[in-house]
Design a protein around this nucleic acid. Sequence first.
RNA 1: GGGGUGGUAGUUAAGUUGGUUAUAACGCCGGCCUGUCACGCCGGAGGCCGCGGGUUCGAGUCCCGUCCACCCCGCCA
Length: 593
Amino acid sequence: MGKFIHEWKKSHGAGELRAQHEGQTVVLMGWVDATRDHGKAVFVDLRDRSGLCQVVFDAADIGDEGFELAGGLRQEYVVAVRGTVRKRAGKPNPNLSSGEIEVLAANLELLNRSAPMPFPVADEVDAGETTRLRYRFLDLRRGPLQHAMITRSRAAQVARSHFDAEGFLEFETPILTRSTPEGARDYLVPSRVSAGTFYALPQSPQLFKQLLQVAGYERYYQIARCFRDEDLRADRQPEFTQIDIEMSFVSPDDVMDVCGRMVSKMFTELRGAGVPDPIPRISYAEAMSRYGVDNPDVRFEMELEDITEKAATCDFKVFSAVASAGGRVIGLCVEGGAKMSRKDIDALTDFVKTYGAKGLAWVKRSGDDLSGPVSKFVDDSLRSALLGDMKMKDGDLGLFIADGDASVALTAAGRLRAHLGQTLGLVSPGSFGFVWITDFPMFERDDETGRLVAMHHPFTAPKEEDLHLLETDPLAVRTSAYDIVVNGQEIGGGSIRIHDQAVQSRVFRALGIEEEEARAKFGFLLDALSFGAPPHGGLAFGFDRLISILVGSDSIRDVIAFPKTTRAACLMTQAPSQVDGAQLEELGLQLKK
RNA sequence: GGGGUGGUAGUUAAGUUGGUUAUAACGCCGGCCUGUCACGCCGGAGGCCGCGGGUUCGAGUCCCGUCCACCCCGCCA
């Protein structure tokens, strides 16, 4: 035992062997993927990271002791095999890269056994995610996850070599940092040395990368871990990774160009997918009116139509009331949708209700006839909206969301559009739709507190021409911020930052952050801005989302080696866990009750 | 915080109007088999029906609570 691992070196990857290796003596090391015991011959599929190779143990060649050992092999045992590559004695297996050949074993070393597997190491596995997360180290042996991890590693290399070639320097910024207001809830780390005080884990390296611009490094990048203590989703984890960049002396175009080129390299090199050059841009306002969302899926048309004016005069009270109350009536024409059943439409109604819509009105067109509950209210004006503006043709379905709150109507309609795009198969699988969204508003109103909050973050530079509105009409102030969206998912966003201390103070004031408070919490930033801060801006990509799109996965859990559940727990390590009273004592902490 | 779906053998599932010993497939264990590759054939073991309470002569099944996983809203850039 142990002889081979010391005396022998693994000579080839199992999946690398080909007919050209015929006659060579090789040493393979890996896992038993499958065994087929025929009594006097045992076939073993040996797997390592490179793939599979069939190894044959023939009683006549390997001797009694070795043969008995081979017969005892089970799934996921770890073995070393020395043998000779030969053309397959039986039929070649076209499903294997090494299917032309096999290795006739001369020696076998059992390096380790495996307990029975909770689920097989196969590309398709029917075990639930709970089981797979508990045994993540086994799930990671499977092909699809291996592919995701390899893609992730390659994508990181593409990013590094791209930004390195563009003159960026890679930095590390603190993980233990200070809590700042705004944004998400912080993960806190108690300080032992200064009991009663806390570090926060960074929600992003935002302030540090700006300070590195003040420090004169001009081009910064980092593949940075970020932490946010908020409720989770398929595309949100408590810790996630950003490709973070920041540049001095740049316009939004400069940032979008250098980032667009990186995206182009990634999709070209890792997916063989073309990326338009330049990537199209639309303003936030345009995105909202055409798609109802700021992350539109541009792979299909079916744009929203605001028919408020033409619906204002009809007898359908829902429309006319909303129109006179200053709300919006938004229409969506579903091509060929007239064949949808009442049940289908009811399901869509339930869908839009989750976004706050009160209901979903609809009209079907068959020839020149309009049918459906709303059809009897269709006057000439509304008819021109349906057939003219919405371009409803024979067999089409018109869907309408009306709401006194314009943003509710738009959002619900936008989500409905995205939902229909997926469910009606309007997007061809494997295609990609890229778009930049620009000119975001600086502020939005917090519904709970009624206060203004920064839409991006409070360091985003307002547009020069809107600066004068900062005090008088803050909601009308637009910024330089830009998001990059692929297939209806935001994969990155950034902005030009404020580099003028006076402007930064005005923004804090607009947000209701008093001078004193701003001093206390962001003093170091305001200081920095006063010492010759260059104009600067940057962007951060959501690396996990980017990879999930590259590998075609629905969940970023599939592209993170050790992800957490929706309750932010790790089913493998059982984190988070309770800690010793002594540890708490040392930190000066006491648990409630 | 709210809504939805699910939890039965190692895994994935079935389980009727509440009824006797809770099924199946794969996996596992034993035996046979020299050309298989999802090998095949014969035999076997394996259950806190998520957990706690209740209704009932009797609960996997009905009721209440609770935990866990996933999806969505809120939240989060």
